[in-house]
Amino acid sequence: MNPFQFTRVTTPKAAISAVTKEKGTYFLAGGTNLIDLMKREVVIPERLVDINKLPLATIEKTVTGLRIGATAKNSAVADNELVKKYFPLLSQALNAGASAQLRNMATVGGNMMQRTRCAYFYDNSMPCNKRSPVQTGGAAGSTERFRADKGQANGPTGCGAIGGFNRMHAIFGASEKCIAVHPSDMCIALVALDATVNVSGPKGDRKIPFGEFHRLPGDKPQQDNTLQPGELIMSVDLPTNRFSDNSHYLKVRDRASYAFALVSVGVALDMKGNTIRDVRLAMGGVAHKPWRLTKAEDFLRGKPATEANFKQAAALAMQGAKGYGENDFKLTLAPNSIIDALKTATKTA
């Protein structure tokens, strides 16, 4: 790891001003991903601004639903009574992520900001366009490539995963520059539950629909999200829903805990008898962003919960999917998982 400056701030304003002022400055929350990235020299910050003392760790009811502070710990959110009662999908997804120790450190905002676990991104002797973009991007979430004592430290460009070890990689929305996936479980629940992200920045406050927070790689895989320079995630809003009786987060992974998803499915339904009145579906482990399955949702809305309908919905969800060799199995595993999750959530299993 490299020497860096460390400051602790107590107000969002001070935090935003600190990262805006000097290049190479990063917010530090739980640190469960950033510290790894620093050890591997994938990210080499000049300065860290510790935001753990900001008053942003609360979870509270609002007129429209629930507001979860950006520095609330993953474990605190997962165990929160309101979350468990009204947004069980979120609680399940959080508990499916990482390990107990990591969930005790990781924050909601940090979870959204975590980088892909693509092996090529983490090994700076291997090609990666996300780590080593052709042009350096200035946006937050992108990687600083240069440092006085390091020179060009971040290794070759290109995409190592294409033609390489891509078992974990994307089947939707990838580009020739990058086929990495976003690793979060929490974000799958949040995109399914129509969350909104409240951010604050040098140019003021704004709201970002959760589905627009993360982005597809396109020509700029170094940019994971749509945050502007200096913007700080303040909180996430969840609208009230009628999904609490029929929610399920299915995570298919190589071991029973502490493994990233091969494929995950978040399902939330509003059932009337056996009829699906409303439904939300999203997948993880399949794209550069939490992947919402709106076509499948539209198909299922108003239909009875039958395996035949689940199969059709899964087929619709898979339109446009593309494998890259080692991850071809996801073209089958993904629809199977959608069906399995729907069966469990509608209790038709």
Partner: peptide, 18 residues
Amino acid sequence: FGRFVNNNLADYHVAVHA
């Protein structure tokens, strides 16, 4: 490349309690 791509305890999966 002749290099490991999962040389850490997050990606090399030893069995966990679960």
